[in-house]
Computed example of a mutant assay.
Amino acid sequence: MIFVASGTQDGRGLVEYLLKQNYKVMASVVTNYGKDLLPKDENLIINDHKLDEEAMKNCLKENKIKVFVDATHPYAVNVSKTAMQVCDELNIPYIRYEREVTPIPAYNKLHLVKTYEEASELAMQLGENIFLTTGSNRLDLFAKDSKKYNKHIIARVLPAIASLQICENCGISPKDIVAVQGPFSESLNIALYEKCNADVVVMKNSGTLGGTETKLTAAIKLGLEIVIIDRPRIDYKKLTHDYDCVGTFVAKYEK
């Protein structure tokens, strides 16, 4: 059986790709929404519980996993580090599938930072109305800093109960929540930025599939300040950006 650490569109695509090749697959997701998006297939088992190191180890052993495919979000570095460590201990072949980064254009109002903390601090210095496209992760940090510096933040998050609960916990007013499923076209991003009177946009480099390119071009056309949290750098044991490469790797170990 192949284990796919999913939770992204990439992960769902890989699950479908492997199922079409008649592999038995276990897909791991962390939300009911992610679970609902996976295909219904007799060869698919879904794990919808969060897996820490010990739970992951037990799961892989109990299900006799032959290959581990890591297709988690590019910024979910802790999951990837745990997966590589567990696979090393259990001698399970590991491969990382990751979407390509979006090239960063030359633009004098674009600022590249390494952490959420840097992004929040800088965004508060650059403008008054800060449009966050980073989802609900670390929203508490931006909310805290916005109160500290008396700035206005708009949070674009998934239309999921968990995301909206985080917004409420952070004290973000419903009028400052854009709860929609991306990615979005350039024109829709422009409309949202204008509607919210944004003068700063904060984003991650989640690749074209994550909508980074159209977020960028929309902000540049409007002359907005842009803060990009750079993608974390990890020394993956085996890294690819291609489904067929994953298929070739899997075929070596799962007959």
Rank of each mutant, 00 (worst) to 15 (best):
H241I: 06
F142P: 07
D235C: 08
M84Q: 14
I229D: 14
L224A: 01
K147Q: 13
L164S: 00
E42Q: 09
I46T: 09
N129T: 05
E98L: 07
V178L: 13
K50W: 07
K50D: 02
M203T: 11
A27H: 10
I65N: 01
Q125C: 10
T240Q: 11
L37P: 07
V79K: 09
G13E: 14
H152E: 05
T217G: 09
N47R: 06
I104W: 03
Q125M: 08
F131C: 04
L110A: 11
I220Q: 11
Q125L: 04
P103N: 08
Y243H: 14
C196F: 15
A27Y: 09
I65Y: 01
A218V: 02
D48W: 01
T240C: 12
A119G: 15
V246S: 02
V4Q: 01
K64Q: 15
A83L: 03
K81N: 00
G207M: 08
V157S: 02
P74A: 01
A76C: 06
K109Y: 11
K50E: 00
A198M: 01
E117F: 05
H241T: 12
K57S: 14
Y17I: 10
H241S: 13
S185P: 15
R12L: 14
E128V: 05
A191E: 12
R96W: 08
K204N: 08
D145H: 02
Q21H: 15
E62P: 05
N197H: 15
L164D: 01
D70Y: 10
V201Q: 07
F68A: 05
G171S: 12
I154H: 03
I172S: 04
V113M: 06
S136R: 03
P105I: 04
N150I: 03
G182L: 11
E42F: 06
S28E: 00
K61T: 15
F142W: 09
N63Q: 06
N22P: 12
T212F: 04
A160V: 15
E16M: 05
E98Q: 15
A219D: 08
V157K: 02
N91S: 12
N32A: 13
D199T: 10
K20A: 14
I228L: 04
K255W: 06
T72V: 04
T82G: 04
M1E: 02
I104Y: 09
F184K: 02
Q181I: 07
N137G: 08
N197M: 07
N197T: 10
E98H: 05
L112C: 14
C245D: 15
A160I: 08
H241L: 12
I229C: 13
E16Y: 02
